[in-house]
Design a protein around this nucleic acid. Structure first.
Length: 544
RNA sequence: GGUCCCAUGGUCAAGAGGCUAAGACGUCGCCCUCUCACGGCGAAAUCAGGGGUUCGAUUCCCCUUGGGACUACCA
């Protein structure tokens, strides 16, 4: 036994060897071209839109290549963990149909042979690897005071920046003698394990990133922490080990990881493992008050949390289609040519992710959502609406159930035809969008100087009100318009506008405002028919 | 401070040395129309700046500028 092996045994007495562990993780049996991807979130209490974006990319790559997509929970930082977070993650994924082939439910089932799928349950593995690296002189124990917390980091950085120290500083503990280490251990001192970097901070390494292309970057020369002083791994150490053991072939991660690639590269090399392919996907941004791009954050931007879309009642397809288009912008062309196809049939190309950092565009999302909802039947809309209300608008559930027929009729206005109306894009807007179907308008979009004409028209309309069928209804409106001095022929009105007060459109506008409060609403006749003559008359009487 | 990433209209973007520089959302206009819509047609709007390389650069290289990330015993 040489000195390093002796040290390894001192630090990590007994335990499994790396060889024993490797035997538990046989190579996956994959057909050629099949990729293994993973979604590896930290359970910090919510699912970020950007994380979900990654999960979608992971899923598509695995599915389209006939490979495997698995879920691994990266819960190595117990300080940040929030209980129940992993079930939030899982339920959101299943809700969107992004279902992993392998996963583990805390205290429940495990699906897949490459677990545990919680990093906190894999400590024995990381320690075996740390022991191996120590034995090979590629890692060492560090007894220094640890940097912890933002203040601490700030202080440390300021010192570092001002002294202009570059990458060449090595950790002081790397030169401790065996005897010094032994004494520290005997004194009961806690230690962390650091990588004994062989880099000089000057050489450059190249690698191919599938989103960014060829990247040339300075090699690592930092004695990075591998195991914290509680002997749990850092992300940097867990990543090469887990992704190797679990057979990941493509790592999709946020581009914030790009700068730490050299570290991972060195650890992979030290371990003697082959690196997977990498896709460093762009983060999703938004604008701040100053017009600068900033990361979508859960504190400032509710849409950063995937639960937002559920709460608002967005259809899941819209969210997926929007995100898919962000990843592969040819999606919308495909959608145009395949209007009714399942979006998972789109020939998604995970290796053609844009390198640009996109701005989250709610307006675009809304548009996609409108399109999707406009294709649903009224009955389908009702089911969605009810489901949404049951979870996020419980006070309306009873009404929706009791008045099912009426609600469906409302939903059916200008729907179920070849060119349906498109203004509903999330279920939470239903009651507001159709507020006039549930009570008299509380305000009217009418200018003060038009008010007298407004009530004049309504007075006349009361007499002409006829809801037997659409044609006679409109004939009456026309008759009345003519009597009041409005044009009933569009072309004629355009020719001689000065001869009229306006055209029949103006009259309709007044009626519309009276009934709905707005200048913009679906088909008037349908609305009034649903409301019934009694209610319409009641509304009119109020305004005359 | 250092390292790295990104740069085509307001937004998402196609284009990969030679094009009148696609398309989508949004905006505006017109048409259709019995109203509101839907739809159709059209318009405005982009290659950040400067150097190279080249017969020719949005495209390749360099610099500048701008934006972003990382620089923790967080991921």
């Amino acid at each position: 036994m040489n000195k390093n092996q002796e040290l390894a045994e001192l630090l990590f007495p007994g335990g499994k060897t790396v060889e024993e562990i490797e035997k538990q993780y046989p190579k996956r049996n994959l057909k050629t071209g099949a990729e293994v991807t993973r979604f590896a979130p930290s359970p910090t209490g919510f699912m970020h839109l950007g994380n979900f974006f990654q999960a979608l990319i992971d899923y598509q790559i695995a599915k389209r290549s006939g490979g495997v997509f698995y879920l691994r929970i990266e819960d190595t930082d117990r300080k940040r963990e929030i209980s129940g977070a992993s079930s939030i993650i899982m339920s959101i994924m299943t809700g969107y149909g992004i279902i992993p082939d392998e996963y583990e439910l805390k205290g429940g089932v495990t699906v897949g042979d490459y677990g545990p799928y919680y990093q906190s349950e894999r400590n024995e593995i990381y320690r075996a690897y740390a022991k191996k690296l120590v034995a090979e002189g590629y890692a060492f124990p560090c007894f220094c005071r640890k940097t912890e917390g933002l203040e601490d980091i700030k202080e440390k950085r300021e010192k570092k920046f001002s002294t202009q120290i570059t990458n060449e500083d090595k950790d002081v503990c790397r030169n401790l003698t065996f005897e010094q280490i032994e004494a520290n251990i005997k004194a009961g001192k806690k230690f962390a394990i650091r990588l004994k970097s062989k880099g000089d901070g000057k050489r450059k390494i190249k690698f191919k990133d599938y989103a960014k292309g060829e990247v040339e970057i300075l090699e690592n020369c930092i004695d990075a922490i591998l195991l914290k002083d509680d002997l749990t791994p850092t992300y940097n150490f867990a990543h090469p080990i887990d992704d190797t053991l679990m057979g990941t072939t493509v790592v999709v991660r946020g581009e914030e990881w790009l700068p730490s690639y050299p570290l991972h590269d060195e650890i992979f090399n030290a371990l003697g493992y082959k690196k997977p392919k990498y896709i460093h996907n762009p983060l999703i941004y938004t604008f701040n008050e100053k017009g600068n791009k900033i990361k979508l954050s859960k504190r400032k931007h509710p849409e950063a949390d995937m639960r937002f879309f559920d709460k608002e009642g967005y259809v899941k397809d819209a969210v997926i289609e929007y995100l898919t288009n962000l990843a592969n912008s040819n999606f919308e062309n495909w959608r145009k040519n395949n209007p009714n196809a399942d979006y998972f049939d789109f020939p998604f190309d995970g290796f053609k992710i844009t390198a640009n950092t996109p701005i989250f565009d709610m307006v675009k999302l809304n548009d996609i959502s409108k399109e999707i909802i406009s294709k649903m039947t009224a009955e389908q809309c009702y089911e969605h609406l009810l489901l949404w209300a049951k979870e996020f608008s419980t006070e309306n559930v009873n009404y929706l159930i009791k008045e099912k027929d009426y609600v469906i009729k409302i939903l059916n206005i200008d729907r179920e035809k070849s060119k349906p109306r498109k203004d509903l894009y999330k279920w939470s807007m239903f009651f507001e969008l159709f507020d006039y179907m549930f009570g008299k308008p509380t305000s009217y979009e009418i200018d003060d100087n038009e008010k007298s004409e407004f009530s004049k028209v309504l007075k006349a309309y009361k007499k002409y009100l006829n809801l037997n069928d659409k044609d006679t209804w409109f004939e009456n409106v026309k008759k009345m318009s003519a009597e009041l001095g409005y044009a009933t022929d569009n072309a004629e009105f355009k020719k001689n506008p000065e001869k009229y007060k306006g055209n029949v459109a103006k009259v309709c506008e007044y009626i519309r405002i009276a009934i709905t409060g707005r200048k913009n609403s679906p088909d008037l006749f349908e609305i009034m028919t649903l409301l019934g003559k009694e209610r319409v008359l009641d509304i009119l009487n109020d305004l005359i």
